[in-house]
């Protein structure tokens, strides 16, 4: 592949200034982002299998797929925003709200309409995040942190702080049944969404513009990218995808649960970063998030099976996020680390 791209006139490249071994390292870096999570997956499987021989089993495969389905979709929502160099801390809370809303609405409005409405609400929440970030120029970190609290409040008001039950069997069919044997539909949805997101990221001008805005916002604008429109669209898209994650969550839980999906925020950021999408923006992609989610799910279900207590699990996950950021952050992009 690289062979065919070599311009015929320059068979040997001039060493780039300050290049040599450094350039080789930089090229290895590109693979590092795929290698690290792959190695992590293999290592985790081997380790937990050696601890309890039941780790590799049909049961745990089902369980892992279930967890993967939800986490991948939440993390996909966050991936887009991180690609443009922002962050959306409200994706998990947005998913919780969607989970409550689908449980509240599905019996009254019927499945398809309720699902469409819930996704529209998610997109609207994202759009509000986007408008405040782009037009009022408030950092996305702060806007979405505030939005997280707002959404928590709304979710609890709607549900009166308790679980919301529903009669419809549609979600059961849509999320938990298997069209392909041994693969719950939820996992299928997650994989299909990842595939679509990957195609969008690499093969549409919109997707490329995400990378451009994340890589160098000013240069993107001067190359003709409508930076503000891209940002608004990204936040709205993140909201819509987070809502889909919420529907998957409620389908799996069989009731709408207030605060239900909230805990997945840290896990989703861990999945994105472990997958190799840099918090500084412009590097990575949705396909990597799938791999990152697998690492996080293996880690947490492995710790469950080997009965590591939940408090220790929190400590481990926090440490993984920090380590992953330390490994992937592009320090040249920040004048000062605060």
């Amino acid at each position: 592949m690289t062979q065919t791209m070599t311009p015929p006139k320059s068979p040997t490249p001039p060493p780039p200034p300050g290049g040599g071994p450094r350039a080789t390292l930089a090229r290895l870096d590109q693979y590092r982002n795929v290698l690290v999570p792959t190695v992590a997956v293999i290592a985790l499987v081997i380790y937990f299998q050696s601890q309890t021989s039941s780790f590799v089993s049909a049961d745990s495969a089902q369980n892992i797929q279930r967890q993967m389905a939800f986490l991948t979709v939440v993390a996909l929502a966050g991936t887009f925003v991180i690609l443009i160099g922002g962050i959306d801390l409200s994706v998990a809370a947005n998913a919780t709200l969607a989970g409550i809303l689908i449980a509240t609405w599905i019996d009254d409005f019927g499945g398809p309409l309720a699902i469409a409405m819930v996704i529209a609400v998610g997109a609207l929440v994202g759009l509000v995040n986007g408008i405040i970030t782009t037009w009022l120029k408030v950092p996305s970190f702060l806007v979405t942190l505030g939005m997280m609290s707002i959404l928590n409040g709304i979710s609890n008001s709607i549900s009166d702080g308790g679980p919301v039950s529903y009669q419809s069997t549609l979600l059961q069919k849509l999320i938990n049944d298997s069209t392909i044997p041994n693969v719950p539909n939820g996992a299928l949805i997650a994989v299909v969404l990842t595939a679509i997101a990957t195609v969008v990221a690499f093969a549409t001008p919109f997707g490329r513009h995400l990378y451009a805005v994340g890589g160098n916002e000013r240069a993107a604008g001067l190359s003709g990218v409508r930076v503000r429109a891209v940002k608004l669209a990204v936040f709205a898209l993140a909201g819509a995808v987070a809502a889909i994650a919420g529907i998957i969550f409620t389908g799996q839980a069989s009731t709408g649960v207030p605060m239900g999906a909230d805990a997945s925020l840290l896990n989703s950021i861990a999945a994105i970063v472990v997958g190799g999408t840099a918090l500084s923006g412009g590097v990575g992609g949705p396909h990597r998030t799938l791999l990152g989610a697998l690492v996080i799910v293996l880690l947490s279900s492995g710790m469950d099976i080997t009965s590591v207590d939940p408090y220790t699990q929190l400590i481990v996950k926090g440490a993984v996020v920090i380590a992953a950021v330390a490994l992937t952050i592009d320090r040249r992009r920040y004048g000062m680390i605060k």
Partner: peptide
Amino acid sequence: QIKTASLSTPIGEL
């Protein structure tokens, strides 16, 4: 006549 081994190289190295 952009001199590089591969167009996959990050442009910062040129």
